[in-house]
């Protein structure tokens, strides 16, 4: 029982570390890094679900009967792409923010907003 879920616990730990970075850090780029880590750990979770003991990669070949589950792989391929698209757009916004505020720290940006 304990060993059976060990893998998932590590995933949860990774997720939460990423989540923590998003919430607690004030640097915009660091927040995006946190977001990436958070998402990537979700991917790891999906792929862990797909693993079958003794299975092999889901490319059909003679003499192999046990394959790992291909469906989560497909979902995660899509999700990775969605993730990088989000990151890229986020970075574009950050570059613009830096031009407008000359800062990428949450604190300073909010200070400037409160002044104006």
């Amino acid at each position: 029982m304990l060993i059976g879920h060990y893998n998932y616990w590590v995933v949860v730990a990774l997720m939460m570390l990423g989540f923590y970075i998003i919430i607690a850090h004030g640097n915009l780029i660091k927040k995006l890094v946190g977001l990436t880590i958070f998402q990537t750990s979700v991917f790891i979770f999906y792929i862990s679900v797909a693993k079958v003991d003794g299975g092999s990669a889901p490319i059909l070949a003679d003499g192999i009967t046990q394959y790992s589950n291909p469906l989560p792989h497909v979902l995660i391929l899509t999700a990775i792409v969605v993730g990088i698209a989000t990151t890229a757009l986020g970075l574009a916004i950050i570059v613009r923010i830096n031009e407008a505020y000359d800062s990428i720290e949450e604190e300073f940006i909010q200070q400037q907003d409160n002044l104006s």
């Binding site: 989000t86 757009l89 986020g90 916004i93 923010i97």
Partner: peptide, 9 residues
């Protein structure tokens, strides 16, 4: 921009 970034996160 700032609003959009917060929404994105």
């Amino acid at each position: 921009l700032w609003a959009s970034y917060q929404y994105l996160i």
